[in-house]
Design a protein around this nucleic acid. Structure first.
Lengths: 260, 260
DNA sequence: TACACCCAGTGTACGACGTAAGCAGTTAAG
DNA sequence: CTTAACTGCTTACGTCGTACACTGGGTGTA
């Protein structure tokens, strides 16, 4: 059955526990039966290579099997399904990041952001996958834990520590996503970002000063020609903002009320 | 043909121009032939309703046609294909946002962020769509233009103006994405976020103090029970950080070098 | 009035996808 | 040896987007 829609997709407890076991408990080798030519780690590795090179949309079970030289269904002997394969891939990617070392909070959070950024650049497909409620793996959690540690001695409440680290994460997620989209578009069209927009004359014709005054002004003053580095610029601003918060005397408490 | 993979997906110039015309030039009514019972705007409207209620994964041409009471293929008389339908949906969503009014930069950017946030909450599927290099529509650009205007009198360079506005956008994108994932997960599982995590005993069993010291510490001190509002908290930090930048004497210039 | 287009909506069909079910061959435990 | 466990393969089903060919209704020109 295809990944199911609104109704009927209710995960059973057994499914959830299986996902947890898959990620947190290394599989025991079977004693009987023929030696497996394939293995879970080889499947995960091959899947990551496909996703890196060709994008999520090319990541099909058939494609992964093909690169390994096996049939599609042989993969299911080593991985319960595509969803769980993605879980494993994400945790493997986090495993490539270094955990934040102890030290001053600002350097630590910057390190965390740069590690995330580097991971996203190596594996942009992560940002095109559903993120929330994916069963977190041990290596994912280890990274997060180390980032929390670096803000643990600042006199913040527990909630504030979580909020500070996730604020950095959200920013990197945001920049990462547009970066990932760009990478995807360049692969699909075979054109660089510049070349693409240069060919959009039909679009530019609609950018008139009456309709889009600022856009045309910035355009004519060359503001789009040499854009600032979005990651570097934004990261510095976010850390500045967190510094204001961390170093302030009385911190405002912002409780979650309306937010889902 | 299916949406094609790595090779062979090279958009022709004619395709691009068609997408531009679709978004920027309202279609002229045909003089001959039978009156159309369906229309482009009705298709877009129905598609948005489906995506709002059932998520992107339920947004199929068949499903949209069904809600309209027409056959699947009838949609193709009004919309060139699914990709272009998505273009139209995104621009329609931006059209629901109010443009930033003139005024002080901080209030203006906060307004911009809240408008984006509100749009994402109403239409979370936008964040699950590829974003970059989607042909921008007139209403999308109008919002961006108005946001640029609010930072135009601060003595920033053109590049800096763009960087400031997109930094806010990236943050909202990041938070929005995790919000969208949560909404999707709640719809698919029929469980609230809390209920979901409460049932993850098999997972918590692996959260030992040796392995994840900070996580367990925050867990025991209740730091995950009443999380701060991620949007409100992060937005305040980002604006604080931008204030530091905007009000500083000599601004560092961060050129894009390595970034894709 | 005749008729040639044009255009709205339909029906069928194809090749992609994830994966369920069952089969054949291999190995170690009893 | 028998048997149970295990690997990998084949076949098949129900999704998806959409190409293609059609029917019939409507308007412009001859």
């Amino acid at each position: 059955m295809q990944a199911s829609g609104a109704e009927g997709a209710w995960l059973k407890q057994s499914d959830r526990d299986r996902a947890v076991r898959l990620l947190w408990e290394p599989p025991a080798e079977p004693t009987r039966g023929p030696k497996a030519a394939l293995s879970q780690s080889r499947v995960v590795e091959a899947a990551m290579k496909v996703a890196d090179a060709e994008g999520v949309e090319a990541l099909t079970m058939r494609r992964v099997a093909e690169t390994l030289g096996f049939t599609t269904m042989s993969l299911y002997r080593h991985v319960p399904g595509k969803s769980e394969l993605l879980d494993l891939m994400v945790d493997a990617a986090w495993g490539e990041t270094a955990c934040v070392p102890k030290g001053p909070w600002r350097e630590g959070l910057e390190f965390y952001a740069r590690q995330m950024w580097q991971m996203y650049r190596a594996h942009p497909w992560i940002l095109q996958l559903p993120h929330s409620r994916r069963t977190p793996g041990p290596r994912t959690m280890a990274s997060f834990d180390a980032a929390l540690a670096v803000v643990s001695e600042l006199g913040l409440t527990a909630e504030e520590m979580v909020a500070v680290v996730t604020a950095v994460g959200h920013f990197v997620d945001g920049v990462g996503r547009t970066m990932a989209d760009r990478v995807k578009a360049e692969r699909e069209t075979g054109m660089t970002e510049e070349a693409w927009w240069d060919g959009q004359d039909a679009l530019w014709a609609h950018f008139t000063p009456e309709r889009l005054p600022m856009m045309t002004h910035i355009w004519t003053t060359g503001g789009f020609e040499r854009p600032l580095d979005e990651f570097e610029f934004g990261l510095a601003r976010v850390l500045d903002g967190l510094a204001v918060f961390i170093e302030s005397e009385d911190r405002p408490l912002v409780r979650r009320e309306t937010c889902l």
